[in-house]
Design a protein around this nucleic acid. Structure first.
Lengths: 126, 126
DNA sequence: TGCGAATATTCGCTTAAACGAATATTCTGT
DNA sequence: ACAGAATATTCGTTTAAGCGAATATTCGCA
């Protein structure tokens, strides 16, 4: 039963936090690690799980791997991503993560001359 | 994170099949066992999980325990029950279960004089 | 009160998830 | 080709889920 795969994605807090961040826009692996305060291998494994369930797409861009929500999500996924968005107000972690994301992005934009390629990928969608 | 509980409910095929049946109307524990072809203790444990996640209500009616979907489901649950309904056409098991349910209900109605109390509960909502 | 049907729970086991730590791989720029 | 940054994978362990079999509990009725 294929839809179970989607539900399994949503059963883990770290994965929910990743999806919550992606609802705002693409991010790269190392930034998940930083924003969530979670070790990189852990992030990597969860990203793999999301990818295999069709809940995430990623592409290499210079030395970053930029992750985003799938362009054509399944109906089930789409509905639950919407739910996740609505859940933001109830879950302080989500809001906290978004704040950290914003701060990180601001910092990155300041150094943008030093990492032009990746930033272009991230901002303009490469 | 409370919503994870809801998603965990939807991660198990047996539970999905139970919910699918309940979308049509209330059922009692022993009938789940019969319709799904699953041992009673297994059904009982899954019902407990659903109950604890707020995805099921049940009340004793004579010697039956009649289960139904909650009157006031959470938004998250409601949305996903709707999805489950849409999934019916893609999952043969669901349709097969519904057929068996229908057959069972017909049979029960024929013996209705012998079990008036429970049937009233089941049909009229007690 | 005691019997039987319906339901719930416990026990021991098996399987699957998740994790940290360490390591391997991939890629970019020099 | 090499060094270093970013990412992925492996290993061994821990924790959680699910299961069948057996047993306990609950409840209606004679």
């Amino acid at each position: 039963m294929k839809s179970i795969q989607v539900y399994q994605c949503f059963c883990d807090e770290t994965r929910l936090r990743i999806l919550n961040l992606l609802l705002v826009g693409p991010m790269c692996v190392c930034h998940f690690s930083e924003v969530l305060g979670v070790p990189q291998p852990k992030v990597s494994r969860h990203l793999k799980a999301l990818r295999e369930a069709g809940a995430l797409e990623s592409k290499r861009c210079y030395n970053w791997t930029i992750c985003s929500l799938p362009e054509a999500p399944s109906a089930l996924l789409e509905v639950n991503l919407k739910c996740l968005q609505d859940l933001r107000s109830e879950e302080p972690v989500f809001k906290k993560d978004l704040k950290k994301r914003e701060a990180l992005m601001g910092r990155l934009l300041n150094q943008a001359e030093e990492l032009p390629g990746q930033m272009r990928c991230l901002i303009e969608g490469c």
